[in-house]
Nucleic acid binder design. Structure first.
Length: 490
RNA sequence: CGGGGCGUAGCACAGCCAGGCAGUGCGCACGGUUUGGGACCGUGAGGUCGCAAGUUCGAAUCUUGCCGCCCCGACCA
């Protein structure tokens, strides 16, 4: 293995790919556009799942599982939904292979053609709402608050590990409500959950907002999103929550009798967050030495590297660190004691930096004599030698400090790269340099489209907290009531 | 689907122009010396040169066809 990875400065995209591969997060598979998530990458996803799942449960949701296959007729029912996904669907048309009569291998048995093709789910609204039809009769049956953890397939033309793959893992929440207000509240509540997850667990500040009509989920009345800024100045949509109105209830006939004894269509929401977040995590914090993980999502939070010349010294070190490990474990901190003799300490230092382990402890004979231990921080790449006494307590606090530092750093970066722009000249110039651009927009599809064509920047969102401010559209000069956020996006 | 590039050891690649024993680095195996920031020496294993046909005494190298992958564009979380 060669040393070093390309720097962000040299080639941001190569830097990203190298981190994914060299840190052991994922690799390309023989299947075009599909990735193999390796144990270390999957461990991060499991941490994300756990945090999110707990928050879903805390907000009253239950997990369930619906089929991988969607009958073509289901997908067709909601017109906009169908159109939105039609171009990226994998379709199953046969159910049997047979020995090739002309030679080796297998061929599709043409006699096994399905009466109706099955789509591999790009999302599950239709299958789920078809089921909800049978679950809902009375207002007393509502709300239905369900989430599923699943894989989905969207046949993308160009893919990148984690950021865009043909198959990806995600969770999709699908809820049914008796009233419009309740459904909108749910949509906003789950956006809040995503936002909390991004900021408190991923240490990644996000802007909460609404998508414009052109960026809205196919079949939704309103799409809410969280948008984060990556280190190269491009935006990444990191989670979406949709208010679906009664669109799916109407096409799947999900009606209930309300308290006034009237037949009423249920109101829907759906919300999803995917393995793309692992890509976001990488691009938000990592540096030219490799991955930098926030302690709350790091599979290994502390690694201990023993340093010894004589093999007989290793047991002495192991004995000394054993109580530290158990004390850290009792605080819920995951620790790896790397006593592998095949690699030298220097190699291990570099390796754990590449893997983004937040805290590294180094301990050798010198430390045993002095009662000290070396503590290295991944986020700031600093080292200090401290007394072994009370070290577990110190590390526990240090992990919190690192978590906070990563957030503060990312927030500072975003603030320094968010610009308020009022003229078209400034806009064009600013877009080239990257970052979020806050500007007035006249609210029309035409203007949005024109700006996209001329600059490649899109409206990432209309921020929820934006203040009413009279202004003129940066492109058309027409009146505008508030600023929206533009950026080039992934 | 349009434009460009590439298929040679597990990985990264050289060799091809100008046909003549299939190579280098990393990794891997074994032995020894090493170990506070990616150690070193020695020995060794590992290949249908993408596939097929053709030209030739002889093809990784030349010709034709096919297959696959990557990058750039249109589409997208």
């Amino acid at each position: 293995m060669s040393k070093g990875i390309p720097t962000r400065e040299e080639d941001y995209s190569a830097w990203y790919n190298e981190i994914v591969k060299r840190a052991g997060l994922a690799e390309n598979s023989p299947i075009r556009g599909c990735m193999i998530i390796k144990p270390y990458g999957y461990a991060i996803w499991e941490k994300m799942q756990k945090a999110l799942d707990d928050m879903f449960k805390a907000t009253g949701h239950e997990n369930a599982y619906f089929p991988l296959f969607v009958p073509k007729s289901f997908l067709e029912k909601e017109e906009e939904h169908a159109e939105g996904f039609a171009k990226e669907c994998a379709v199953v048309t046969h159910y049997r292979l047979k020995a090739n009569p002309d030679g080796k291998g297998l061929v599709i048995d043409e006699d096994s053609e399905l009466e109706e093709p099955l789509i591999i789910r790009p999302t599950s609204e239709t299958v789920i709402w078809n089921a909800y039809k049978n679950w809902v009769q009375s207002w007393r049956d509502l709300p239905i608050l369900i989430n599923q953890w699943a894989n989905v397939v969207r046949w993308e033309m160009r893919t990148r590990l984690f950021l865009r793959t043909a198959e990806f893992l995600w969770q999709e929440g699908h809820t049914a409500h008796a009233t419009e207000l309740e459904a909108i509240e749910e949509t906003e509540r789950m956006l809040g959950v995503y936002s909390t997850f991004a900021e408190e667990w991923m240490a990644m500040p996000v802007i909460q907002g609404l998508k414009t009509a052109s960026e809205r989920f196919a079949g939704a009345v309103e799409t809410y999103c969280i948008e984060a800024l990556m280190q190269d100045g491009k935006a990444l949509q990191s989670g979406t929550s949709h208010f679906l109105g009664q669109n799916f209830a109407k096409v799947f006939d999900v009606k209930f009798v309300n308290q006034e004894n009237e037949q009423t269509y249920a109101w829907a929401t759906s919300w999803g967050l995917s393995t793309r977040m692992i890509g976001a995590l990488i691009m938000a914090h990592s540096d030219d030495k490799g991955l930098v993980l926030p302690p709350k999502l790091a599979p290994i939070q502390v690694v201990i590297v023993p340093i010894y010349r004589d093999e007989a010294d290793l047991p002495k070190i192991a004995e000394k660190v054993a109580p530290i490990i158990s004390e850290l474990n009792s605080k819920g901190i995951s620790v790896k004691f790397d006593d592998d003799d095949k690699y030298k300490p220097g190699w291990k230092f570099a390796e754990y930096e590449l893997k983004g382990v937040p805290v590294r402890l180094g301990i050798g004979m010198r430390d045993l004599e002095n009662g000290t231990i070396e503590v290295a921080r991944r986020d700031e790449l600093t080292k200090e030698t401290l007394p072994m006494e009370g070290i577990a307590e110190y590390i526990s606090g240090l992990l919190d400090k690192i978590q906070q530092n990563l957030y503060d750093r990312a927030l500072k970066f975003r603030e320094e790269n968010t610009f308020s722009v009022d003229t078209w000249e400034d806009f064009k110039e600013r877009v080239e340099k990257g970052g979020f651009i806050s500007a007035h927009w006249d609210g029309t599809d035409e203007t949005e489209e024109a700006i996209k064509n001329e600059t490649k920047a899109t409206i990432r969102c209309i921020p929820l907290n934006s203040i009413e401010e009279v202004g003129e559209c940066v492109y058309s000069g027409k009146p505008s009531a508030k600023r929206v956020v533009f950026a080039k996006a992934y």
